[in-house]
């Protein structure tokens, strides 16, 4: 019983991180129909920037994270302007390859600056606490609270502000949005900004319980793709729900099936889904 609650809490924590990463991915997909393979590199950079700020200048954790969000967000905007915008009318294979090129560059860049070593991030919230008879570090609790807070903020932004509603409008119908006078370029940039920011938050929150290294984004981004296919490409609630489902499945799978193969669960899940529904779950059939 103890193990079960512990694993459920673990699943919640992992799921929170997955959801945040998947949210950024799904927003960009919804607006621009780009499967952004470079999103994992943004996640990785987010962790490194926070880490560097803390180590080099002794900046406080939260401030470091805020800087990271800003820098990675701007990097996302830069990617849109320099690469994806010029490719908007190219054949579908092109933007994927371009994204892969960015991914490779950013990883090599990180390796050049920070080296290939695995690093750990110290957190001011390392103490162990006791909730409902189970032990956890404050950091893990923080991940959950932080992620949920970010999701609520994002929801309010998308639903309650004008600028947020333009993102939704454009995700639903790009040409229509253009016709009613929405500046689609601006919305695209904004979306990349948010998407990069979300990746930076996810990475900065989870770095203290994981390790920081140039390839840290690989598995996360692959799983984020699984999640958004699970939850419907472009769907915001789908990304959140899918993230938590995968988080729980993995942490329970690791305990009760095999720790070695826990990373395969996500991919097997995807292979099964796409085998049955080639256009993903929740696809609007026939269109």
């Amino acid at each position: 019983m103890d193990i079960l609650t512990q694993q459920l809490f673990n699943g919640l924590t992992i799921g929170s991180v997955y959801s945040l990463v998947a949210l950024g991915l799904t927003l960009v997909y919804g607006i621009l129909h780009i499967p952004n393979f470079a999103h994992g590199a943004l996640y990785m950079l987010g962790a490194y920037i926070t880490l560097t700020m803390m180590l080099l200048w002794g900046v406080h954790y939260w401030i470091a994270m805020a800087v990271s969000v800003l820098v990675v967000g701007l990097l996302g905007v830069l990617m849109d302007r320099l690469v994806f915008h010029p490719l908007r009318n190219a054949p579908p294979i092109h933007d994927k390859i371009a994204a892969i090129g960015i991914l490779l560059f950013l990883e090599a860049f990180a390796q050049l600056i920070w080296g290939a070593d695995y690093r750990t991030m110290e957190t001011p919230y390392g103490q162990v606490i006791d909730i409902f008879g189970m032990t956890a570090t404050t950091q893990r609790v923080l991940i959950n609270i932080g992620a949920i807070a970010v999701m609520i903020l994002l929801y309010l932004f998308l639903k309650k502000t004008y600028i947020g509603s333009t993102i939704i409008a454009m995700a639903q119908n790009r040409e229509g949005a253009h016709l009613v006078g929405i500046n689609t370029n601006k919305v695209a940039m904004l979306t990349f900004m948010i998407s990069g920011g979300l990746a930076a938050i996810a990475a900065s929150l989870s770095a203290p319980i994981n390790l920081v290294f140039p390839g840290m984004g690989h598995l996360v981004i692959l799983k984020a793709f699984v999640i958004i296919i699970l939850g419907g490409m472009g769907s915001v609630p789908g990304a959140i729900l899918g993230g938590y489902i995968l988080g729980f499945t993995e942490s329970l799978g690791a305990t009760y099936i095999s720790n070695d193969y826990k990373d395969i669960i996500a991919f097997l899940l995807l292979v099964v889904i796409l085998s049955i529904k080639p256009k993903g779950l929740f696809s609007r059939e026939d269109f």
Partner: peptide
Amino acid sequence: QDYRMLIFGPLLTLLIIFYP
């Protein structure tokens, strides 16, 4: 060796934009 993608990554991206 380890940093070759610093050159090849952008090269890949630029090629697909200008010389697909």
